[in-house]
Amino acid sequence: MAKKSVRQAINEALASEMRRDPRVVIMGEDIAGGMGAPGEDDAWGGPLGVTKGLLGEFGRDRVLDTPITESAFIGAAAGAAATGLRPVAELMFVDFMGVCFDQIYNQAAKFRYMFGGKAVTPLVVRTMYGAGLRAASQHSQCLYPMFTHIPGLKVVIPSSAYEAKGLLIQAIRDDDPVVFFEHKAMYDEEEEVPDEAYTIPFGEANITREGDDVTVVAFGRMVQFANQAADKLAKEGITCTVIDPRTTSPLDEDTILEEVAATGRLVVVDEASPRCNMATDISALVAQRAFSALKAPVRMVTPPHTPVPFAADLEDLYIPGPAQIEQAIREVAA
């Protein structure tokens, strides 16, 4: 097993499924040549190089550059999925969902239900999210709570390279529309990733740390920060269970409730804006179904309710980090 970046892991997942199944096609802005490039040789592979090399192997019929019209190509992908292909569409920044949301939430998400189970929509929308790259407020949001809100969509937030490959292959093989969130600050993060294809089931949380004192639930990039905080506190004798739910829809409620029952204390870490996000959702779940187990109030670690700042110092302050998580754990453990 070799160390691979999140970027490589996603690229391998796409390549492996395109080799395995001729119905898998990819489409999006600049994912093939893009940028007015003259030919196959200098294909960019998307704004961050994730799809690089796929054009050469699979050709123009299966690697489709699209116009900068999200409503058109996300709609085309949804229609293609409903009629026999398994498209993976790249919505460059999730912040652009506004111009193609009807195609996702009111079309793709509803097909199976509206057609009485006779239609499947094996669509994957890959999309970039998150703050930290100085991309300002229109390119830095974490909009997964808005997709999680919609019945009929599956929502995946991988927390590492290993997770990204297995979850993306699972997403491509799934018969329902899946929105797959890639944190733009994580593409270069590396870990050991198998060369073979493998799948990680949806709705099965990963417990990344085991402890007795506090349960920490974290999503996406926040998982590594929660692990760092847990490792630091473990040296002082405060041990944490860290849960990475992997998917917000379906959500592994059982694991969260079992672990909260064991520790009696909960911290939820979410990079999304604090109102109606995953932190409030998990807190409500625990308040309703594990209240009697709680020994302390639930703490949420989130950014403030503001647009993501462009000023570097302010953006750094905005993003929740290991220090805030550590403080929250100390408060509930006290």
């Binding site: 290993y162 198998p194 073979e196 493998y198 990680i200």
Partner: peptide, 8 residues
């Protein structure tokens, strides 16, 4: 667990 997730 990682081994058991590999195709085949």
């Amino acid at each position: 667990l990682k081994f058991k997730r590999i195709d085949g």
